[in-house]
Computed example of a mutant assay.
Amino acid sequence: MMKRVVGSVLFGTGLFLVVVAVALAFVVTPRVSKMPLDLEPPETVLSGPDATFVQAKRTGDNLEIAVQHGDLTAINGIKPDVQEAAKLTGDLADETVVWTVYQAIKRADNDELINASQSRIAMDRKTGAAVDWSGQCYTDGDGEPCEPGSISYDGQLYAFPFGTEKRTYEYFDSTLKRPLPIQYQATEKVEGLTVYKFVQEVPEQQANMDPELVHGLLGVFAPTATDGEIRYRTTRTLWVEPVTGSVVDYQDAQHRELVADTGERTVLIDAVFRYTPDTRATIVDKASDGRTMLMALSRYVPIGLTVLGLGLLVLGYLVARGGRAPAREPVAEPAPRHASSPA
């Protein structure tokens, strides 16, 4: 009787562990595979050594605009807007994060500001892709907030999906203000972490810029020209941790130049920006922690619980079966003997 009780307990425990394993893999993991609404990514710093760039400097009443050479530093900061995200309704409710992004490019030698911008974007918490939201905006400068509806973001920008695949995605180009394909190239290691390398090639083309800005630049660098345009090209390389979708390393080799109708060409910026080692190490650490947690919840713990649970199911069955009294085979009674007749 005791063996049957012990066997039943072992069988029930095994069944419970299998159910927990299934719940972790198919219920808990999908729920935690989302960006937290209050997630504040670390500030990223990119170095742009030996760059060519246009700098506007004001000395008293004089504004001097000239092409410079030197090292640049790009800084990106992100602030989550939990209150704005809580206002979203319909399909966006509880599935969307809202971020305010601040960007600045400075000279590395004297910290003088070269360019600044800010933007607001809403992204899907699972895929990391921009969603249709009326509050999207972008503006140059570090003064007034950007005007809602001034830009329409689409595709990936600051994150990739949880469970990033080896395929082509659409990645938003802030200069052209539209998404373009970014292709998977290889699987590599960054700081010992396995990552997917994606590359986006943007061939040289005209960048749609404010006509007043273009004519202002023409007045400085090509005063005899009557018209012109800004030509733009870049090659972006992103290294993405596939489990979390975190961009753990980033490089942008961009080139813009002013082309006047007189044939004159002036380089406005030619620089290769890449995460600094400190930025890369910080993001790799956070991505590693996230990967470890998700892999444990989705794979390692469920597999371990399943193996243990199945083992207890089998053991419980055998113990319970061993506790039963074996059935006895019916014993055939010998045929009765009849006395022989005397001869």
Score class of each variant (00 low, 15 high):
residue 2 M to R: 11
residue 2 M to V: 10
residue 10 L to W: 06
residue 12 G to N: 04
residue 14 G to Y: 01
residue 14 G to D: 07
residue 21 A to M: 02
residue 28 V to K: 06
residue 30 P to I: 03
residue 30 P to T: 06
residue 31 R to K: 14
residue 33 S to A: 13
residue 36 P to G: 00
residue 42 P to Y: 13
residue 42 P to L: 10
residue 54 V to F: 00
residue 56 A to H: 13
residue 59 T to F: 14
residue 59 T to Y: 15
residue 61 D to T: 09
residue 63 L to Y: 03
residue 67 V to Y: 06
residue 76 N to M: 14
residue 77 G to C: 04
residue 77 G to D: 12
residue 79 K to T: 11
residue 79 K to A: 07
residue 82 V to P: 06
residue 87 K to A: 04
residue 89 T to N: 01
residue 97 V to F: 05
residue 102 Y to V: 12
residue 103 Q to E: 15
residue 108 A to K: 14
residue 109 D to Q: 02
residue 111 D to T: 13
residue 114 I to Y: 03
residue 116 A to H: 00
residue 116 A to F: 01
residue 117 S to L: 09
residue 117 S to A: 12
residue 123 M to W: 03
residue 124 D to R: 03
residue 125 R to T: 08
residue 126 K to E: 10
residue 127 T to Y: 03
residue 132 D to S: 14
residue 136 Q to L: 01
residue 137 C to A: 02
residue 137 C to F: 00
residue 137 C to R: 07
residue 145 P to T: 07
residue 146 C to M: 11
residue 148 P to F: 07
residue 149 G to Y: 00
residue 149 G to L: 02
residue 149 G to S: 00
residue 150 S to C: 13
residue 150 S to G: 11
residue 153 Y to I: 04
residue 156 Q to S: 14
residue 161 P to V: 05
residue 161 P to D: 08
residue 162 F to I: 08
residue 165 E to S: 12
residue 167 R to N: 00
residue 169 Y to F: 15
residue 170 E to K: 15
residue 171 Y to K: 08
residue 172 F to K: 06
residue 173 D to H: 09
residue 176 L to C: 03
residue 178 R to S: 08
residue 180 L to V: 01
residue 181 P to T: 13
residue 182 I to T: 13
residue 183 Q to P: 02
residue 188 E to D: 07
residue 190 V to N: 08
residue 190 V to L: 09
residue 195 V to T: 09
residue 197 K to G: 02
residue 201 E to G: 03
residue 201 E to M: 02
residue 203 P to Y: 00
residue 203 P to A: 11
residue 204 E to Q: 14
residue 204 E to L: 04
residue 210 D to T: 10
residue 216 G to Y: 11
residue 217 L to A: 03
residue 218 L to E: 01
residue 221 F to K: 14
residue 221 F to W: 09
residue 224 T to D: 15
residue 226 T to P: 05
residue 227 D to T: 09
residue 228 G to F: 14
residue 229 E to M: 10
residue 229 E to K: 15
residue 231 R to T: 01
residue 231 R to C: 01
residue 234 T to H: 09
residue 234 T to P: 02
residue 236 R to K: 06
residue 236 R to A: 01
residue 239 W to T: 07
residue 240 V to R: 05
residue 240 V to Y: 05
residue 248 V to F: 00
residue 248 V to I: 13
residue 249 D to W: 09
residue 255 H to C: 04
residue 256 R to S: 09
residue 257 E to C: 07
residue 261 D to C: 09
residue 262 T to I: 03
residue 265 R to M: 13
residue 269 I to A: 02
residue 270 D to T: 12
residue 276 T to D: 10
residue 277 P to I: 00
residue 281 A to I: 01
residue 287 A to M: 02
residue 293 M to L: 15
residue 294 L to I: 08
residue 296 A to P: 06
residue 297 L to R: 02
residue 298 S to R: 12
residue 303 I to S: 11
residue 304 G to L: 12
residue 305 L to A: 04
residue 305 L to D: 09
residue 306 T to Y: 12
residue 314 V to D: 09
residue 316 G to T: 07
residue 317 Y to C: 12
residue 318 L to E: 05
residue 319 V to F: 08
residue 319 V to G: 03
residue 320 A to I: 04
residue 320 A to R: 15
residue 321 R to K: 12
residue 330 P to Y: 14
residue 331 V to G: 05
residue 331 V to A: 02
residue 332 A to W: 12
residue 335 A to S: 11
residue 337 R to Y: 10
residue 341 S to I: 06
residue 343 A to W: 02
